[in-house]
Nucleic acid binder design. Structure first.
Lengths: 349, 349
DNA sequence: ATACCAACAGTAATCGATTACTATAGCCGC
DNA sequence: GCGGCTATAGTAATCGATTACTGTTGGTAT
């Protein structure tokens, strides 16, 4: 019942048992192509199995200077958008024998820096990051020492970083145009603080589409810092929807900067006795799965999150394999998911 | 513009620059309490900083045989329940200077085994697992070599494993009792395949509560294997709700084995023109945040996911610190979240 | 003045695995 | 029968950091 803390088995132990040198054991167990006689090979494999040998990767990685691991830094896995990205990354990585270390920066730049350091210390040679911070000095230093980096979602400037972005501006434009095409002219926009580039881009798309038809933008922006948390976003959506309704000329359609906020908008509307889409149209942004589980199913702009993860990982592995492609940016295109939260209000002739 | 792959700086390089031995450098940089003169100490620190020294944790961990890392194996981060658990684990771990490696078994026993091996190879000494597999031989072997393990959510049998469970049975019982207390007598239960212990337990709770009042259980169980995926669950909820409605004596309330499935139930009802809770009451199980974003807000049984993560991590760190507590099980209690999807149908006198 | 101890610094072993290098034996061709 | 090649195996250096051990110096207590 006590625990006599057995020292783990090493190749040296196996070497002794098999009466060979540890070099031979290593050659067999690591799958090297160095020739070893069939008899010896079998004997070593048998002993390794019998003794439950577990290789120590620290030793191996230290010597070979390769950890077959990639790091991922994202704001938070509890955001379904990012958890999809991760699933995409892991799928590709696993397929190629790589492991993934995921770090949640929790929207905290300091924590992001800390994870960056940890990842470097663990000798991880490849990183996929959706950066929250603005000071990329550390990132740049790591790249100078040979780390390969792919930035996703959030643009990072700095030379030598390949990017996978969304065309947020276009997404904002598409959403607005869709509402316009359904006959809406007074279109409100609710958004969390316009502090991040991605959010500003969506807004620009909205504004541009409005200007094209000489329409007045009507925006409700959150003043608060986002403590990123679904429930907060939801409540913010409610609050901002309320604001728009109390405007002098309330809109007939509301565009929310993300799906969860759109949920809040819909909720607030229904509390005030307004039916979506009969009394008010709503469109979201993100395309999370829950959007089709609510009533009415949310029309939204889809970001191909899973694909983004897969693509980022493929690009990174190519870089790690020494394929010296030029640094390049991929811009993924938004896609309109037409469901049932937008009404056609055109007066058809 | 080319990349002359600089060899990374080691303590030996610093030693040379500072004209001291690498032992002294290590003593300064690793925060040892071995005395080093102030002058030397400062010089070393200055040079380390100037040269952007990044310690190689592989070397350190290999020598000290401690990786300050814990492993976590869960079915999938895209399930908000588990992502909450992870956030709880990480919070505690970070606070104590530990890192966390998260592995998604994706409900695949073989993949779980593989990750188990990987974690062992990485010399991780502590593991928190929500196991999907039934063969715990490997897990037991790892524990024999000194790995500390805490099982959460899913019961794992095997000696020496501390558990943190939910009282699923009681949760099922409470949900059913709540519906009964609101006057419901015909209560349907929709569930995914009763193949996992946790699911069977919820069902038992339901059945027990029904028997207590001599009521006939009315269950719709999915025949399909669960490809774990929210959308699937949602659709299954729709399908099973349909089944219940077509029963000879359709229920007045439906209890779903998880929240997403309850979303499906509600959706199906509303498609068929039934209003929740006026025409049918619905109760869920899990307590995910999205439950309060739908209409009507979902009454459900809350599992303290975040707390579970924190608790598991605390227990694990205690174990790793050599605090030889007895193996013990914690059973977390379910909690009724009363929102608005259940109607009171009692004929009040 | 002697014994003892603390402060400080270096040498070298060590963690576990890989691999460059060296060595031996058997076989082939000519 | 000799150079050369292949198959096979062992020796020892190596990755980067830590640390047991040894040694030197200077101060202090008696």
């Amino acid at each position: 019942m006590s625990n006599p803390v057995k020292r783990p088995i090493t190749i040296h132990d196996i070497a002794k048992l098999a009466e060979v040198s540890s070099a031979t054991v290593s050659r067999v167990l690591s799958g090297s192509d160095y020739p070893v006689s069939a008899a010896t090979r079998e004997k070593i494999q048998r002993i390794a199995k019998e003794s439950n040998y577990i290789p120590n990767m620290l030793g191996k990685q230290l010597k070979t200077n390769s950890s077959m691991t990639i790091g991922v830094i994202i704001p938070s896995i509890s955001n379904p958008f990012y958890s999809s990205v991760i699933l995409g990354i892991e799928g590709i990585a696993r397929q190629k024998g790589f492991h993934v270390i995921v770090c949640n920066s929790l929207h905290d730049a300091a924590l992001e820096q800390e994870y960056l350091k940890t990842i470097a210390e663990k000798q991880v040679k490849g990183l996929i990051i959706s950066s929250i911070g603005s000071d990329q000095a550390m990132l740049q230093k790591l790249m100078d020492t040979g780390m390969k980096v792919i930035a996703i979602d959030q643009k990072v400037d700095g030379e030598g970083i390949s990017q996978i972005e969304f065309d947020y501006r276009k997404g904002g434009y598409m959403a607005t145009k869709h509402l316009q095409s359904m006959g809406h002219r007074k279109i409100g926009y609710v958004t969390s603080q316009l502090d991040r580039p991605s959010r500003r881009s969506i807004y620009q798309g909205y504004e541009e589409a409005m200007r094209e038809l000489d329409l007045e933008p009507l925006t409700a922006e959150s003043a608060e810092d986002d403590v990123y948390n679904s429930l907060n976003e939801f409540n913010m959506g409610k609050k901002l929807a309320g604001k728009l309704l109390e405007a002098v000329h309330p809109p007939t359609a509301i565009f929310a900067c993300n799906d969860v906020m759109a949920f809040g908008v819909i909720n607030e509307l229904s509390l005030r006795g307004l039916q979506v889409p009969r009394d008010m149209s709503v469109i979201g942004f993100d395309g999370i799965e829950y959007g089709q589980m609510i009533h009415p199913p949310l029309t939204t702009i889809k970001q191909p999150d899973y694909e983004m993860g897969r693509m980022a990982c493929s690009m990174l592995l190519d870089l790690l394999n020494g394929e010296t492609k030029p640094v390049y940016d991929v811009v993924l295109q938004p896609q309109l998911l037409e469901r049932s939260s937008v009404a056609d209000v055109q007066s058809k002739p």
